[in-house]
Write a protein that binds this DNA or RNA. Structure first.
Lengths: 212, 212, 212, 212
DNA sequence: AATGAATGAGTCTTCATTCAT
DNA sequence: AATGAATGAAGACTCATTCAT
């Protein structure tokens, strides 16, 4: 029972941190701001988190973990790799588009330092990349996607496109539906991957060039 | 004469700032670190820059400005839009791959806060985006690229892919040639854009969806 | 309970500030000097005061407020306006003469800038001036003081004389009893105010001149 | 010939200093502000003055010296001690009332620290006090003023009253003629000093009290 | 004599973190 | 578990002063 109360407070603090970090930026936010927003005393934060950085790290772990497992489950229900990519793009942009504060924290605040980012890349983000890559491999096995692709490269491209959509959305002064862009992105990507008989020679030559 | 001395010192300070910010991160760097690296007194920094933030802003303006004008000139010498995109990708990744410190500052340190990023997006980055978009339009006019594309979206995708390559390169523990990835990225993108008669119907429906 | 602790510490800091400012001057005093003298950490100062200036302002408000209310009560116990003026002079010089550090802060350090002084004049000092002026009016109503007096002017004269006594005392290398001067000052002032039948013509002409 | 040029520039710098110090306060004024106002380079200030403090000291010496010698000459032309006091009050308030910036510097900025003030009191101000005191003694010798007066005390009172007039004038939001107050002040003072047969006993007792 | 670019010492203030209650 | 008063380390920035020209 106390376990649940505790975890409830932990989540409240994380929610408060998202709001505060999104609005003031991580470095301009004070721990006491987060505490006030969460309705707890400053010291209480330190009962649940090692330090201020740990708030950001926990935020990332928690939410990225949730996202990857949700995405995994969603993909398991689909067969077609192209469809899976569309679904992934949709989930990615929906998740961020649903909560602007969260998106700001993810797209901006979480990328403060190369140390932070390196840490993130090596952990949860790697899981996400694996998920994407697996879909691509499946598509290749099924003959739907080209064989000569640099798998890791295109995986990163997929992420990079979605990531840029999200960042742009945040920075834009206009209000628009982020998730609606997922179709366009996934389409571009799937077309780019597609096994297209007519352009064989060209692609081949490029690939060769890239190797040099 | 004083003009040249002045500008020389200004550039030296910016170079020093790149090194220092890249290695310690902007927030962990002290102004006095930059001064020491530049071989000037602390106060001298403030003769050339308003404050610590201004160092970062000036860095971005200067280098991004240089890059966009170099890229513009390079593209002017080419005709084929696909080739232009390959060249752009190459220039983008070469510029960053040539100077790791610079890349770190650009990919990470420059993205500290949404205020910073919003500022940047609205200025120099917009010029870069225009450059990309113009190439895409040209390709469409020439019938090389699909007509129904969401121009802005694909422009951002192109940038997003390259951006992710650069970020990954920085965060990677392995050392590899960043510029060598440009072919793969441009190829994926150009294939994605290509007018492909066989997939008409599908693309159309997607386009419609994206518009909604 | 916390209220009392808090206020206790606040007063201790103010006492420390008086000592430190008096001995080194406000501008030459460091906040950390005040903290050390008060036996608290530097940061603690900022729990009770907005900034260094606020220390000085609070000092003035607190002590001047105390003085005026003490003086008001003391005068209420007396009838004769001349006696009241003697008492006021005595209280004024006693207050400062009792605590040299306080006097230094009041006579010198508190007068740093016209902004500071203007602030002070408009608030607590105005209360003190009202107190003096009321006594003078009473004396006039009772026929003890001349009728044609420029009330505000003589009020300021009274304060000015006492103020100069205090300043001189501080700057003097000799040690003497400041309060002992109150009689002389009050006597001079009361004589100057007195309704004196024998000098009518002269006073009248002067008075008229003063009005022009 | 260079001598005159030099001195001209020195005076220009002092004039500039008065303006700048009056408007921003001594501590908030930068040496470079004074230089700009004087139309010279920063370094030039140091050809004429030892340091920033020296500007203030020179200001005081120069202007107070001028004032005292002018006042001495003016008094020499008069006989009646009461008239002399009126004239002195008039000169005092006229000098300050003529130039608000100068008045601000004299009444406020020059009183920054007890060290400054002690220095001033011991020098030029002492000359002024001697001037006043001499007039009072003359009045006593001529039987115009009371014998039992505490000469130094009343001298300081005279100065204190005028000083307060000036300070109040500066701090006042209203604009009025400062010199016009000299009559009222001098009148109050002369009345206070006057040999008044009818109040002999009273004064005596006060005096005795003051001694105790 | 005049300049003004360069210097670098000096300090107020913030805020993450602790710990007695 | 929760509090929040207290801590004190840390650093951006200013500006009086110098000195090579």
């Amino acid at each position: 029972m106390p376990r649940r109360v505790e975890q409830g407070k932990r989540k409240e603090i994380l929610q408060a941190a998202i709001r505060v970090f999104a609005r003031s930026g991580f470095f301009n936010s004070k721990v006491s701001d987060v505490a006030r927003q969460a309705g707890v005393a400053d010291g209480t934060i330190y009962l649940y988190f090692r330090n201020k950085d740990d708030l950001l790290i926990s935020l990332f772990d928690q939410i990225m973990g949730d996202f990857v497992s949700r995405a995994s489950r969603a993909l398991a229900a689909l067969d077609d790799p192209a469809e899976k990519l569309h679904r992934l793009a949709q989930l990615h942009l929906e998740s961020l588009g649903r909560n602007r504060d969260l998106a700001v924290v993810f797209q901006i605040e979480l990328r403060h330092s190369s140390k932070f980012m390196a840490r993130f890349s090596r952990t949860r983000l790697a899981d996400y990349f694996k998920l994407i890559q697996e879909v691509i491999r499946q598509g290749q096995r099924q003959g739907r996607f080209r064989k000569g692709l640099h798998e890791k490269l295109v995986t990163k491209c997929f992420f990079g496109m979605l990531d840029e959509m999200a960042t742009n959305w945040i920075l834009s002064e206009r209000q628009y539906d982020l998730a609606a862009l997922s179709e366009g992105v996934a389409d571009l990507f799937v077309c780019g991957l597609a096994a297209s008989p007519g352009k064989k020679s060209r692609v081949k030559s490029r690939r060769v060039a890239a190797r040099s």
